[in-house]
Design a protein around this nucleic acid. Structure first.
Lengths: 209, 209
DNA sequence: GTCACCATGGGTCGGGCGACCTATTGGCGT
DNA sequence: ACGCCAATAGGTCGCCCGACCCATGGTGAC
């Protein structure tokens, strides 16, 4: 679970990005700041794993706040003005990555994972090559031991196909087999019934859409 | 269900906002355009109920696209430069509302609902008064008949509290009462067990966070 | 004041569900 | 060739769940 603090004065982006990143199973948005002031206050308090900060904010620059926070942070800078001037200033305050606001969401997620893992993308020769290594759909840590069939059943639960017979019909297998798969799902996710399984399935991103 | 088309060249905002609005039960993001070109192509195709468009895009102005699309659309303009100059130009192409990108998400949602209902906020005397009328937490149409207690139980289900006894303990009531509430939930939402109820609860926005 | 509705609590009954166990088949790695 | 594991299927058992009844008190509408 990567704990993130987002700072951006545009609420539209701040709120949207918070929800979008929060939906990704291995991310947790630990805080959101709309001002540099809030960033300075929140960061030492919640100690996020990765900072995602905008440069331009009405009450100052996100970069100055980063400098003051010291070298202990792992920060991703995002800005509308993705030029070398800004990039150099970001590098100077110890930022690990530098993104334009035109970057697609999956790339941002991969960047955050890379920075969390200790990579520095801001002066990398081939940033895309690094990003590709962190691009996994990344279900939660609990989910990696699930088999394909088990995920399939979880996906059905997340769609509201809850009866054993309904699941069996959907997959063209015996209802006994469905119950076997469910039992191993319960064990792996440390839960005890299909309602909790449906909740977990949705949380893990196995739901529709 | 309000069908929305979003246009913004900043993918970070486009992706984040799409997911955030899509999570709101009465909204459906029918399309997302990162260019004016895409906006022109998509709008006549998917015929959204409300357009949410940025002014500044690299291949032109969102306003000119709106003008070309004719008067049949209901559009909300969002921009970083929320000055009178831009507001007047937005009004001139028939936009119904004009928002800064610093607007918080709930206000954006309320604005979209207002515009969908036929309101025009761009030259309203007291826009906040109008917004307040569209600010309902707005659960889905199925959910409006649910009582407070029923929603409380749905919220517990969405958190994975699935056993009748667990729910009863949480609410300090008899397990019989829990089953009665569940029965009326099943009837109102036209479902038949608590797993489907948990899925619906999450879809309706009753989940955690 | 009456009526509708909600929250509360209770009872019965049948079927579905979860826990536990065994077993066969097929693929994959070494 | 051997072992491991996923996927398949079957069985039993006890309990929980959902369907269908009923009753009471409180609250708000008209």
């Amino acid at each position: 679970m990567i704990r993130i603090l987002i700072a951006d004065d545009h609420h539209l982006l701040l709120d949207g990005l918070s929800q979008a990143l929060g939906r990704i199973p291995d991310f947790e948005v630990a805080g959101a700041a709309a001002t540099v002031e809030a960033l300075r206050t929140l960061a030492p308090d919640i100690l996020p794993d990765v900072l995602l900060v905008d440069i331009e904010m009405p009450d100052g620059s996100g970069l100055s706040a980063l400098r003051d926070l010291g070298a202990g942070h792992r920060a991703v800078i995002m800005t509308m003005h993705a030029d070398d001037e800004h990039r150099n200033r970001a590098r100077a305050v110890g930022a690990r990555a530098f993104l334009s606001k035109a970057t697609p969401l999956p790339d941002v997620a991969a960047t955050i994972r890379a920075v969390h893992a200790g990579e520095s993308l801001i002066d990398a020769d081939d940033p895309d090559a690094i990003l590709d290594r962190y691009r996994e759909p990344s279900l939660g840590p609990d989910a990696d031991s699930l088999t394909a069939r088990e995920r399939e059943i979880l996906a059905l639960l997340a769609r509201g196909i809850s009866g054993t017979a309904d699941i069996a019909d959907e997959l063209y297998i015996s209802h006994k087999t469905v119950k076997n798969h469910l039992a191993s799902i319960y064990e792996k996710l440390r839960i005890s019934d299909r309602t909790q399984a449906a909740v977990e399935a949705i949380r893990l991103g196995l739901g529709p859409s």
